[in-house]
Amino acid sequence: MSTKVTFWPSGKAIEVKPGTSLLTAARKAGVLIQTRCGGNAACFMCKVQVRPGSDLMPIADDERRKLAGLDEQGCRLACQAKARGLVEVDVPLDPLRAAVQKLLAKQAEESDDLW
């Protein structure tokens, strides 16, 4: 038995064994999810948004405490959340990529203003 995890906005999907963490699934799919702690739920960098209807194993008390209520809004730590069935996850842009995209958009806007 396997489970399918799809990562957005890339749309990359991968089949994994039930119980595989979202972080492990992302790495196998070639999707970058930032982490500093090596997947020990210490850095909070791997926070992702799980889409409604996704089938994950129940959240552990440690992860729930670290998320401090964000789990009720669909946020999970990719290093701790384990897939059980079909799962869809929104992965935020890493901060450097987001800053570069913002700068490029601003430059394009300024360039348009010159014409």
Rank of each mutant, 00 (worst) to 15 (best):
L67A: 09
F44M: 15
S2P: 04
I33N: 08
E109Y: 02
A105K: 07
T20M: 07
A98D: 15
T3D: 10
M45F: 01
C79V: 04
C75W: 14
P9I: 05
Q80F: 05
D55P: 01
V87C: 03
K102A: 14
K82D: 01
E63Q: 06
C75Q: 13
A60C: 08
T24W: 05
A98E: 15
A105D: 08
L77C: 03
P92Q: 06
D113C: 09
G53R: 11
L70Y: 14
A26R: 05
G19I: 04
A42S: 13
G85T: 07
V100G: 01
D90T: 02
Q107K: 11
I33D: 08
I14N: 12
D112V: 12
V5S: 11
C43I: 07
P52Y: 02
L32D: 13
G74W: 01
D90I: 00
A42E: 15
R36Y: 13
K47W: 00
V100K: 09
A25V: 06
A42D: 12
R51G: 00
Q34C: 04
P58I: 07
E88S: 15
C37D: 07
W115A: 13
A41N: 09
M1Q: 11
T3L: 01
S2D: 14
C79M: 02
K28G: 09
E63H: 03
C46I: 10
V87G: 04
R84L: 12
S54L: 03
D62L: 11
R27C: 05
L114F: 13
T24C: 07
L96H: 14
M45W: 00
K66H: 09
K102S: 11
A83M: 02
L23F: 13
P92E: 06
A83G: 13
T6S: 11
L67C: 04
V91G: 10
V91A: 10
K28M: 14
P18K: 08
R84T: 02
S54C: 04
G11R: 06
C46F: 07
G69F: 00
A108L: 12
D62I: 13
Q73V: 00
K106Y: 00
C37W: 03
R84F: 05
R65N: 09
E72Q: 15
L93K: 10
A26G: 07
W8P: 00
Q73I: 00
E15I: 01
A26P: 01
R64V: 12
A42L: 14
A98K: 15
D62P: 00
A98I: 01
V31N: 09
A108H: 06
G39H: 07
A81Y: 01
L22K: 10
L96G: 06
L56A: 06
A26Y: 02
L56F: 03
R27D: 15
A108Q: 14
R64T: 15
Q34D: 14
V50W: 04
D71A: 11
E63S: 04
R76P: 08
A25F: 04
L22T: 13
P52K: 11
C79K: 02
D112G: 04
V16L: 05
C46H: 05
R51Q: 15
A108F: 03
K82N: 03
T6L: 04
G53L: 09
A78Y: 01
C75F: 14
A105E: 11
S2E: 14
L86E: 15
I59D: 12
E72S: 13
K106S: 08
L104T: 10
E109L: 12
A68Q: 14
V87L: 02
Q34V: 14
Q49R: 13
A108E: 15
